[in-house]
């Protein structure tokens, strides 16, 4: 399999605090690659650097063979790298459909259009409706996003990233704050979308990680200490010591 995303020796420090320390990582086309690690391991900082909201101090990020280390966030989205947020970040006062149509609009041509009503662009609404169906919110399309239940908002959160038609989906703790039933829904959603898009999954929910991931990387103190198939990670002594509780591994 080809490498879709190649992170090489990425580093970021805030004052004296080393948040990302020489991280190297590859995500292959078609895989779900999970990134796990204890709180404070540097996962969020890494996501910020990959999505482009934070500039690394050193190292390179290549996407489909192209160096994107210095690209702005919106240029990375155009290149095919979209993210979701750990804390739900949606357009609360707009309907589900309007939310998704915006993301579709962002990838379909210039929006420096000042005269033609956007309501006349059926292609936007059609594409948004498709995504609403994909994430299971077809029935809720007209509801203001702020009025959705928590689980539905998390689905929309992912839907906004999906609607940009990425080739790599960066999911920052998609199950954050969810009960088992809601988590189930997101796991099913990732199972559905993984056929079309590679996923870098940052997640604390070990059940979900071991169910979904083709490969797992473990981030501790800003460094990747191991990468491998779920079975290898389970068996890895260093990972056991540094991070995973025994009960998590015994499942």
């Amino acid at each position: 399999m080809a490498e879709l995303l190649e992170i090489h020796s990425l580093a970021k420090r805030f004052g004296g605090v080393v948040a990302t320390d020489d991280v190297s990582l590859e995500v292959r086309a078609g895989e779900v690659h999970a990134l796990i690690g204890p709180n404070g391991a540097g996962k969020t900082t890494l996501v910020a650097q990959l999505s482009g909201s934070l500039a690394p101090d050193a190292g390179t990020i290549a996407f489909e063979g192209r160096d994107i280390t210095r690209l702005a966030q919106h240029e990375r989205v155009k290149a095919g790298l979209a993210r979701s947020f750990q804390l739900t970040s949606i357009f609360g006062r707009l309907s589900v459909l309007e939310n998704l149509a915006l993301a579709v609009q962002a990838r379909s041509g210039s929006s420096l259009s000042f005269w033609r009503p956007v309501a006349a662009e059926h292609a936007l609404t059609d594409a948004a409706t498709d995504v609403a169906g994909e994430i299971g919110l077809a029935e809720r399309a007209q509801v203001p996003a702020g009025e959705l239940a928590h689980g539905e908002q998390r689905a929309l959160e992912m839907g906004l990233a999906l609607a940009t038609r990425p080739r790599l989906l960066l999911l920052d703790e998609p199950m954050a704050g969810m009960g088992p039933e809601e988590s189930q829904r997101i796991v099913a959603l990732i199972e559905r979308v993984r056929t079309g898009v590679a996923v870098l999954l940052i997640e604390h929910d070990m059940d979900a990680v071991f169910r979904l991931a083709d490969r797992i990387s473990v981030l501790v103190n800003g460094r990747v200490i191991a990468t491998g198939a779920p079975g290898e990670i389970r068996a890895n002594e260093e990972v056991r010591k540094a991070y995973l509780g025994d009960e998590a591994l015994s499942t």
Binding site: K78, R83, F85, S89, G92, R93, Q105, T164
Partner: peptide, 23 residues
Amino acid sequence: HARFGRVIVAIRENESRAEAIGF
């Protein structure tokens, strides 16, 4: 009511998300 207006309202509502979907 045109594309441009949708974008500036989206930015008003949630700037970081507007950037993250590619604007």
